[in-house]
Design a protein around this nucleic acid. Structure first.
Length: 197
DNA sequence: GGAGCGATGTCCT
DNA sequence: GGACATCGCTCCG
């Protein structure tokens, strides 16, 4: 049975939410279709206590969403060409968030391939294995999705729990950062072929 | 299959 | 002006 993940789920600290998001479904409503991926990799960013987090330098116009209430999308633009999707967690005023790094494609694979500019039948790992890739596959941009409520089905982007057992979780260091790189805040489903790198 | 590197916008010092 | 929570292409084995 599929259930919408409620706002209370995101009240916990980011390292808890990141781990518990594994195995859940990210659902994007797009052109009348459902684009669905199972979350297989996520990283925690721990607000103003975490030198690697966007929130570390304090609240700005860009990162305001992560200082707001839990369960909202923080989408930012990086390296001049990629978007990354985070979900805010912890109560309003606390700046934790979780970066979604990889999905296992479940539904709408043909549309994902088109959005990624890939021929049908290409390696499925190219669809959504990586934070920039999954945003492109699901047509998620800052303009369309930053600040939207992922606990509302009407947002066109939400998280579902289909009660499938997630399996064992592998913990490692976060990818692509320089500051606080030694902290074990990356969580992935062990052995899943859609985990990035 | 792995290391090296260029692309390219936005934010912050 | 530099850094950046990335990706895909080249070149080399």
């Amino acid at each position: 049975m599929k259930a919408l993940v409620p706002r209370a789920f995101y009240l916990d600290p980011p390292e808890v939410v990141a781990r518990e998001l594994l195995g859940k479904l990210l659902v994007r409503r797009y052109e009348g279709k459902r684009l669905v991926g199972r979350i297989v990799e996520a990283e925690a960013y721990c607000g103003i206590d975490d030198p690697a987090a966007h929130a570390y330098a304090g609240k700005t116009e860009r990162n305001a969403v992560i200082f707001g209430p839990p369960g909202f999308a923080y989408v930012y633009f990086i390296y001049g060409m990629h978007y990354c999707l985070n979900i805010s967690c912890e109560p309003k005023g606390h700046a934790g968030c979780v970066l979604l790094r990889a999905l296992e494609p479940v539904e709408g694979l043909d549309v994902m391939a088109r959005n990624r500019g890939l021929a049908p039948g290409s390696d499925l790992r190219l669809l959504t294995s990586g934070p920039g890739r999954l945003c492109q596959a699901l047509a998620i941009t800052r303009l369309t999705h930053n600040g939207i409520d992922v606990t509302s089905v009407r947002s066109g982007l939400h998280v579902e729990d289909d009660s499938r057992a997630a399996g064992s979780v592998e913990v490692s260091r976060r990818v692509g950062i320089r500051k606080a790189a030694d902290r074990p805040l990356r969580f992935a489903l062990a052995g899943n072929r859609f985990v990035s790198r």
